[in-house]
Amino acid sequence: MALGHGDYGDVLALQRTLHAKRCAGELGDLLLSVEHNPVFTLGRSGMHDHILVAEDTLKQQGIQIHEIERGGDITYHGPGQLVVYPIFDLRGFGKDIHRFIWSLEEAIIQTLSELGIGSARNDGFPGVWVGARKIASIGVYVKNWVTYHGLALNVDVNQAHFRMIRPCGLSIETVSLNDIRDLHMSVAEVGAIVVRQLGALLEKDIVTMDRKEVI
């Protein structure tokens, strides 16, 4: 389900609704793809002092802050970044969280490979990396064996926003796909490839739906 541009709070509420419906067996597995308005999200171990600028500056730039239930520290979502949220019942996937996370990473690595960009996992440092620079983040919440939250892949992100935080609590450099190869790809175009790759890795046929068809 491609949501286009979406406010973080609205999409989080939608995820929680869909998660409850998936747990109740009212829906099948879903992938939501979205491009958020600028927002910093703090996971369970997130620390406000990993935001490096004053709150007034964030307000002026229209950047929201949300504290959420997923694992991990702080991350940024915003225009030019593909976000994919799988609402996925792991009971149909061997209850194997390791394989599920591996599949999310692999979908990103395979997508970048299709676009001529080499990327890899980095032991001890979550996400997907191009050399020493981080291009994608992963953070998942699992309740009743059904997932929500998911992955974020930088397609053409305002790097100045990333420099306002210590992403994941680390002093790391982030990078966007279009910085590495000037492919002028839109978030929607990259999203179509990631969703196709995820369908294959999660062993699902992908059917495209809009929001009204789902709820």
Binding site: E69, G71, I101, Y141, V142, N144
Partner: peptide
């Protein structure tokens, strides 16, 4: 929902 454990970028709720 009783407790949360974290592993491999995942927060898992134990009932």
């Amino acid at each position: 929902d009783l407790l949360e454990v974290e592993t491999e970028k995942t927060t898992f709720v134990i009932p």
